[in-house]
Design a protein around this nucleic acid. Structure first.
Lengths: 202, 202, 202, 202
DNA sequence: CATGAATGAGATTTCATTCAT
DNA sequence: CATGAATGAAATCTCATTCAT
């Protein structure tokens, strides 16, 4: 009887290794053999699970996002207070990259770059969708926080865009120079400023 | 010294071409021959002015920033009203990339990526310095806006960080999906929210 | 010895599959996995019956020829009239490749190529022997047709060579462009021309 | 001033080397580096002139045929007697492969194989055209020989097909086993037999 | 100085063969 | 026995860099 292998599990292993190496060296500077080595398998084995390096890149993006999504939703699930929920969302992105995962952050830049340069590819469409989803999630969270009927829905959605922007922008600055400011604190502040502004609107 | 000037001019030509191609295809996917073609010169000639592809990349970053800096300072120079000045700063980054330059935006991702991965390289140190300078510029502008002795200097510097973050973050979202929001308007709003917050502090 | 027979049967299965795939894709472009798939067995199982891909190639040639030989001899066996016998020989090669077998024809080119390039290998020696045998078979058939003591044996053997050549040459032209001529008719004509020539010799 | 190179001449050099190696080792067993070595250039240089190995293969076929065509037409040009002309045609193919060129013969098998397997590719269409042209050339030559109005045009064209077939078929037998018969003599005989047959038709 | 032809190191990808199950 | 997952040797192809002209 042949060896029975869980293909999906093995793919996940390879993707995990790939993300690790992509992050450290950048996608362009990563050789297939690097990924194989990191995954503890032979170079040829990679091609049993993926058709090409590009396919690994695209699927690793998918894999990465699913992981992040599941972490965020798990966190928010336990929290009922709207303000707490919002702050949790804000802080989660950082915490994801803490510890071993901190170095993983830079892979985001490769995803962004690929998406911006190939707007019609799956990865780009995906990213656009992700942003839209996140804007909507944040819009809901913000609305729960302010509980004011007057505030226009449009304002809240734009506030959501600004909040995402702030968090990502702060993240970029912070991984470049972690002494510039305390990330968690600043992210929290940015969130509070926005909520305060929304509440005072009338 | 006409020779020197000639040489500098030629280097500038090449860098301009390089930035153009880097932006469109990404640094990793750009061939030396692409740059040569874009610059309208021979492939070998590149090596009369630069030692390697990496040197072109690093110098193109320098060149890019100098250009942006000069555009910003020219703009701010003409304006005296602090609030106007701040809003001008906020809007300049967009306008730089408008028209032919819009496509140049994605080169920023390659600069960020390189910096994050090689924190000790010139380009990274440079980027850290640039961010610091910009935080200080914005801090001054913000202080001019609020004219309140009470506000702690620390708060203002953090507000500057958040402002830079918002602008960059909005920029990323916007170039991925230009239908998501009106960039100029939203950037202006983000700036105003921050100022309002600073003013109300006490 | 049921085991032995079983094994031979399985080998025959594999060879049959191999010939099918070799014909369609060419030996060089055929993967072991293609053969395994065509044979409906696992890739590794092939190696239970053959030492290497090359061994499969060589044995498939043997197998192919045995099959053709048996078909030809079965046909000729039933016929007593010499002229009929000769024409039957001429037409058999075509009919072999008719229907499902037509596509099998191109494998001959790989056998020829291999033989020409490695004259000392078994396959080449085999092919030389086959040609010689066929020349002798045709020589006999031709002699039965003309029943003339005067005709030199040498002439008849050369006529046999020409006949084989005509049939094979027509076959090549015909599989390249089946609209060029009617193969069966033309093969028959070539045979008759040769016999006529032999009869008129004196 | 840059080195000025005759691209066409260089391509011809590479093709000549390629044909040499293809012939000796077979197309499938020929590495790009083999061709480069035979041409006395670097591996990478090949790709300055050809996009892929397959392109070399296809163009080498073209190149090969043009060469053979020019040799044949040069030969026939000098001869006025129709029978002599026909025999010259018959003998030329052999002589082409004599001396250094004998080994080149086997490349024909790779051309045939490729054509048969990919009937829609340029190389196959070309080969079909070549055969058709040669059938027509031979048809003219044969008609000049027999000078008989009665003979149907169709018969002559089929005789041309048979003649080509005989020559090619003899060629295959002969390169496999050069002791089987004298090629030149036998080719001549095959030609004469056909002409005799045509003449006697009425 | 300027050039682009030439190069080979190095990357991706293929696939015959092995071997643990 | 049968299998197919794993492998690495080897092939194709790319491209930064050199250098003769």
């Amino acid at each position: 009887m042949p060896k029975k292998i869980d293909k999906e599990e093995k793919k996940a292993n390879i993707l995990e290794a790939a993300i690790k190496v992509f992050s450290k060296k950048g996608v362009a500077n990563t050789k297939i053999s690097d990924i194989a080595e990191a995954a503890g398998i032979g170079k040829g084995t990679i091609y049993e699970y993926f058709r090409s390096k590009d396919e690994i890149f695209v699927e690793s993006f998918q894999f990465f996002l699913e992981k992040v999504d599941s972490i965020i939703s798990q966190r928010l699930y336990r929290i009922s207070d709207p303000m707490e929920k919002l702050l949790a969302y804000s802080s989660t992105w950082t915490e994801i990259f803490e510890g071993d995962y901190l170095e993983y952050a830079s892979i985001l830049l490769d995803f962004w770059a690929k998406s911006i340069r190939n707007k019609k590819e799956a990865i780009a469409l995906n990213l656009v969708k992700i942003y839209d989803e996140n804007r909507n999630i944040l819009k809901s969270l913000l609305e729960d926080c302010i509980t004011k009927e007057k505030t226009s829905s449009l304002d809240v959605k734009i506030a959501a865009s600004i909040l995402i922007a702030s968090l990502e922008g702060l993240f970029i600055q912070w991984i470049l120079d972690r002494s510039a400011f305390d990330f968690k604190e600043t992210a929290k502040l940015a969130t509070e400023i926005l909520i305060e502004w929304l509440k005072k609107r009338d």
